[in-house]
Simulated scan of single mutants.
Amino acid sequence: MEPSLQTEVRSASEEAAAMAARLVLDGQPVAVPTETVYGLAADATNAEAVARIYAAKGRPSFNPLIVHVPDVTAAQQLGAFDAAALSLAEAHWPGPLTLVVPKKADAGIAPLVTAGLESIAIRVPAHPVMRMLLEMAGRPLAAPSANASGKISPTSAAHVKASLDGRIALILDGGQAKRGIESTIIAATDGTLRLLRRGPIDVPGALASDDARIEAPGQLSSHYAPGKPLRLEATHAEADEILIGYGDVEGELSLGRDPVTAAARLFAALHEADASPHPRIAVAPIPGDGLAAAIRDRLRRAAAPRP
C-alpha cells in the first residue's frame, strides 16, 4: 500500500476517541494504545474494514486476528466459553490474556478476522483509551499490532507513525505501552487449556501446544484450507470446477475487482466453494503487490498438498 493518507497523531482524549470511533464506523482502521502494544483497530464485523488493516500493514499472512470487546458478557456473545475458559476470563480480564474459544454461529464476525476458522481469539483490554474506543464505536474491534508487516511491534505513538505514516488516518497517542509485549494466548477449544503464545500472564496447567493448526496470531503453520483440490491462476472453469473470479475473469463466485474487496471476500468465497456440489475449485489470477501478494500467498497455502 503506497502512502496516500495524511496521518494525524492526536493525544488520547474523549474528543480524539470520538473521532477514532467515527473512522472505525466508516470502515477505516485507527491506531490505538493497549496495555500490551499499540493496535491497529477496525470494525471486526466489517470485512472490508478488516482488509484495510492488512492493506495498511503491507504484505502480511492472513493469520487470525484478536477481537477486542469491553467485557466478558460481550465475549460470550461471540464465543462459547467452557468452565475453564470462563474462570480464566473472570480472573484476568480486563488484561493481557487472549482466549481462543469456539466461535458462535451467530457471532457476526467477518470471516477474514478468524481466517475462516471455527474458533475465535478474544481479549478484554484494560487500557482506558482502547476501552473508550470500544464503548464509543459499539463494535468488537479486530486489532493486530500497529506496525508494517515484519517490523518490530510498536509501544509508542512515535513507533506507529514511523511505521504506518501515510497508511492510516489517525493515531491516538496514549503514551508508552505498559507491558510492551503481546498478550498471552490460551486455547480452550477441546476441553483442555493449551498455550499458543507466551506473554505477560502465566497460566498454570496450560499445556504447550505442538498442534500444527493455526488458531491465533504468532503461529506459523498453514491456515484454513478447503477440503477440495484448489487450482490457482485459472482463467476459466473446467467441467468439474467452480470458479472464483477476480477482475475481468468472471466466475460463479467473485472476489471483486480490487485487493481490499478480494481480501474481504476470500474466506467466505472459499467456504461457499467448498460447500458447492463441484468436486474441485479454481481461482482466478490475483495480480499485484502488497495485499494482492498476501492473497496469493494465502491461496498457495490453501492449495498445497496435505501431508
Rank of each mutant, 00 (worst) to 15 (best):
L117F: 06
R123F: 04
A55P: 15
A80E: 15
P64C: 05
D71M: 14
I122S: 03
F62M: 07
T73V: 14
W93N: 10
V30P: 05
I109T: 06
F62C: 05
A49C: 09
V72I: 15
L134W: 00
A55V: 09
L78D: 00
V72W: 06
R22P: 02
Q28V: 02
D106W: 06
D82M: 13
V113K: 03
A91T: 15
K103I: 05
R22S: 12
V30L: 07
V32Q: 00
P94K: 02
I66C: 09
P125I: 04
L117E: 01
P60G: 03
A47F: 10
P125R: 09
G95R: 14
D43S: 12
I109C: 07
V129E: 03
V50G: 03
I66E: 10
V124L: 11
M130I: 09
A41R: 01
A51R: 09
T114A: 15
W93P: 13
L65F: 10
V72H: 01
S119P: 06
V24F: 00
S61W: 12
L78N: 04
L88H: 08
V67K: 12
L65K: 06
L99E: 02
A121V: 03
T114Q: 08
A110Y: 07
L97I: 03
T114G: 10
G108W: 12
P96W: 12
P125S: 02
F81K: 13
P33C: 06
S87D: 14
Y38T: 04
A42I: 04
L40T: 02
A21N: 05
F81E: 00
D82N: 15
A49S: 13
T36S: 15
P29T: 12
D43R: 12
V30A: 08
Y54F: 15
A47P: 06
G39S: 07
V37F: 07
A84W: 00
L112A: 08
R59E: 15
R131V: 08
R52T: 08
T114M: 10
V50N: 06
W93E: 05
H127Q: 15
G116F: 04
V113D: 13
T114C: 14
G95E: 07
A84M: 14
V69S: 03
V32T: 11
V24D: 08
A42R: 01
G39V: 03
E118I: 02
D106K: 05
G58H: 04
A80P: 02
G39P: 11
L117P: 04
L86R: 09
A115C: 11
A56Q: 10
I66M: 13
R131Q: 15
L65Y: 11
L65G: 05
K103Y: 01
M130P: 04
L86H: 07
V69R: 00
S61Q: 10
A85K: 07
A44C: 07
P33E: 02
S61G: 12
L134C: 06
A126S: 11
T36M: 05
P70C: 12
K103S: 07
A42E: 11
A91I: 05
V37K: 04
S87A: 13
A121M: 13
K104Q: 12
I120L: 10
T98N: 14
T98M: 05
R59S: 14
T36G: 14
A49H: 14
A47Q: 12
V129W: 01
A110D: 10
W93C: 10
L99T: 03
Q28S: 13
K57I: 13
M132W: 05
P111K: 03
L25S: 10
P60R: 13
L133W: 01
